[in-house]
């Protein structure tokens, strides 16, 4: 996610200025047709009427959003009552993503800081070690996690075999398994931006504070954490946003009771529920949520830069 990154270097070379629009044309066309237009079209679909067994009828309707927030009874003519089914799925997704983000921060911050304090030559190798798992197929990583955490899996074998537990722990199909899966999926995203910020941290500040009799932990809290805050914020967004809309971790590790937004949306298009406008509306609500988070953070960062 390079949303906050600058668009270019400090030098403004103009060597290829006359050709710039031609050079950009292929990307423009591809991304406009295959990303921008589809997202706009999805927005349109969320205001259409559903056709049974998938698809839409071209008739304006707010019923998709209405269904999301209100319950009008079996025949649709009762007075609207706020309905919690879908709101609570969104709320659970926010909570699960939040817990996963917190877990990543607790593990990711010390890791990033530790790497930043290694000798310069070693750092690249540490960063590389943290990055590799990210490039391994997310599906395979999630399946591996499930394999490890199973009731009869290696983790439980180890815990029971070593006498730590008398009975295997049930982890799969719990909220915790989903949190663990999300944490595992996006942990490298937390480490990298914090590392980038910590690497630029001026340790003379720590020394100055220590000379003024600050303890090590006071230095951490009062000097180090505020200095690397932009990295922490970036890391939290990079973990939280993909967690929010994730499909694989809740689907494979969570089971039916631990439904998240991703599964709700998928079901509208893949499953038997087949309500396309509702799926489009749920996607729009998710997209809006994400864009608001990104905008707020971009604002904050712009303010911090002044």
């Amino acid at each position: 996610m390079a949303g906050g990154a600058s668009t270019g270097g400090s030098s403004q070379s103009e060597t290829f200025a006359p050709a710039r629009y031609w050079l950009l044309l292929p990307s423009w066309v591809t991304l406009t047709i295959l990303v921008l237009a589809p997202v706009s079209m999805m927005m349109g679909y969320s205001f259409l009427t559903k056709e049974f067994r998938g698809g839409v009828i071209w008739e304006f309707s707010l019923s998709a959003y209405d269904q999301f927030f209100f319950d009008r009874g079996l025949f649709g003519d009762d007075p609207p009552v706020l309905q919690w089914t879908y709101i609570s799925i969104f709320w659970r997704s926010i909570w699960q993503a939040g817990v996963a983000t917190l877990m990543s921060l607790v593990i990711g911050f010390p890791t990033a800081y530790f790497i930043a304090t290694r000798p310069e030559k070693e750092r690249a190798i540490w960063v590389f070690l943290v990055t590799i798992p990210y490039w391994v197929n997310l599906l395979i990583r999630t399946v591996s996690m499930k394999f490890l955490l199973r009731d009869q899996g290696p983790l439980n074998d180890l815990l029971v075999g070593s006498g730590l537990l008398s009975e295997p722990l049930t982890i799969v199909n719990t909220n915790f398994a989903v949190q663990l899966g999300l944490f595992y999926s996006y942990l490298p995203f937390m480490v990298l931006p914090i590392y980038a910020a910590a690497e630029r941290y001026n340790f003379a500040l720590s020394e100055a504070a220590a000379d003024l009799y600050a303890t090590r932990w006071t230095v951490l809290r009062r000097i180090l954490l505020p200095s690397v805050k932009p990295g922490i914020v970036a890391g939290c967004i990079l973990v939280f946003v993909p967690s929010l809309g994730s499909f694989l971790a809740p689907d494979l590790l969570g089971g039916a009771k631990n439904f998240m937004i991703g599964s709700l949306i998928e079901e509208q298009f893949k499953g038997n529920a087949g309500n396309w406008p509702f799926g489009a509306a749920a996607s729009m609500i998710l997209l809006t949520l994400v864009m608001v988070i990104l905008l707020i953070s971009a604002r904050q960062q712009a303010k911090g830069g002044k």
């Binding site: 390079a2 990303v35 997202v39 079209m41 999805m42 991703g262 949306i265 996607s283 998710l286 994400v290």
Partner: peptide, 12 residues
């Protein structure tokens, strides 16, 4: 494509 959640791109 990096900012829009993958599931939203998929639906769209």
């Amino acid at each position: 494509p990096l900012m829009v959640p993958e599931i939203v791109t998929a639906v769209a």
